[in-house]
Computed example of a mutant assay.
Amino acid sequence: MSEALSLPKALHEKVLNTIVDKFSLTEELSADGEAFLPLFSQLPMHQGSVGYMRKFTGNPLFQVVTSSIVVPALQLDSHMVFAFTPSDSAVPHFTVDSVCAGEHHAFHLDLIPRMDLGSQLTYMNEVFLPLTESWERGSSIEGLSRAHLSPRQLGIMSPWMLANRATESAFEEITAVVDDYLEHWFSLLEKGVSAEALNGVTSEELIARDARNKFAIFNADVDPVWQRIAPLVGEEAASKQIETLRAISG
């Protein structure tokens, strides 16, 4: 498996570079000038570096956090981008994961709701409804199968989430859908959420919900992937990743 040429790595780099370049974000490095959090294997079958968490900041975002873990011995090639809007914003967070495990590809694409969709119809119509055509196109790609997500995981994301296992050809096709989601997210950042869609929800309420939502998303009890990451990179590094992803802006 070649990290530099892998499909997950290519999609990851395309999305990350597009976001960083569009907003001229600044990368926050470690004290020794390396990535924000270098990751090292704790497994005897593979020694040394297995990847890193990177962190970027700059307006109009709160932070962009990535996590890349590549372990040839485990046939694992995994890359995540999570672009967080400020905690007092109603504009969704953007995320895309891209993975190759052995011969199997998988991805997760979503805009994370900042308000309760079940009680805020105008917000849902304004912010998420425009994604429907792209969601339907992405859902109909031949070669996709459902990812194994629990009802709790589904409940804390959006109904427009795409989370699938994919053949190589299907994974290549999803790039256009990722572009659609990213462009829609950019348009929301530019125009913001209308007062009608906010429906009286305050900045304080948005901040409090953001903290609760991140606690649920980045939670080893809810998402079992963290139970696999901790033995691989160590409890301290795994906890640091979760702490970074759960951060809120004041």
Score class of each variant (00 low, 15 high):
138 G>T: 00
138 G>E: 01
138 G>M: 04
138 G>V: 03
138 G>C: 05
138 G>D: 01
138 G>N: 04
139 S>V: 03
139 S>K: 08
139 S>P: 00
139 S>A: 06
139 S>I: 00
139 S>H: 07
139 S>Y: 02
140 S>H: 09
140 S>C: 04
140 S>T: 02
140 S>G: 00
141 I>W: 07
141 I>A: 09
141 I>H: 06
141 I>Y: 06
141 I>G: 08
141 I>F: 06
142 E>Q: 14
142 E>L: 15
142 E>V: 14
143 G>M: 08
143 G>Q: 10
143 G>E: 05
143 G>H: 06
143 G>L: 15
144 L>W: 03
144 L>C: 01
144 L>N: 02
145 S>N: 09
145 S>W: 05
145 S>T: 05
145 S>I: 02
146 R>N: 09
146 R>T: 04
146 R>I: 02
146 R>Q: 11
147 A>D: 03
147 A>R: 09
147 A>G: 12
148 H>S: 15
148 H>R: 14
148 H>A: 15
148 H>F: 11
148 H>D: 14
148 H>L: 12
148 H>V: 10
149 L>D: 02
149 L>E: 07
149 L>C: 12
149 L>P: 00
149 L>G: 00
149 L>K: 10
149 L>H: 05
150 S>I: 00
150 S>D: 03
150 S>N: 02
151 P>F: 08
151 P>I: 11
151 P>T: 11
151 P>W: 01
152 R>G: 07
152 R>T: 06
152 R>C: 10
152 R>M: 12
153 Q>S: 05
153 Q>V: 04
153 Q>A: 07
153 Q>T: 04
153 Q>K: 10
153 Q>D: 05
154 L>G: 09
154 L>T: 00
154 L>E: 09
154 L>W: 11
154 L>A: 13
155 G>D: 07
155 G>F: 02
155 G>M: 10
155 G>V: 01
156 I>S: 03
156 I>Y: 03
157 M>D: 08
157 M>L: 10
157 M>I: 03
158 S>F: 04
158 S>L: 11
159 P>K: 13
159 P>S: 14
159 P>A: 11
159 P>F: 05
159 P>M: 10
160 W>N: 02
160 W>V: 08
160 W>L: 12
160 W>H: 08
160 W>Y: 06
161 M>N: 07
161 M>L: 13
162 L>S: 03
162 L>D: 00
162 L>M: 04
162 L>T: 01
162 L>K: 03
163 A>Q: 03
163 A>F: 01
163 A>W: 00
163 A>V: 02
163 A>I: 05
163 A>R: 09
163 A>T: 08
164 N>I: 00
164 N>F: 10
164 N>L: 12
165 R>F: 13
165 R>W: 07
165 R>T: 04
166 A>Y: 05
166 A>Q: 05
167 T>V: 09
167 T>Y: 04
167 T>K: 11
167 T>G: 10
168 E>T: 13
168 E>C: 12
168 E>Q: 15
169 S>T: 14
169 S>I: 11
169 S>D: 14
170 A>N: 06
170 A>P: 03
170 A>M: 13
170 A>Y: 02
170 A>K: 12
170 A>I: 03
171 F>Q: 12
171 F>L: 13
171 F>E: 13
172 E>N: 13
172 E>P: 07
172 E>D: 12
172 E>L: 13
172 E>S: 15
172 E>H: 13
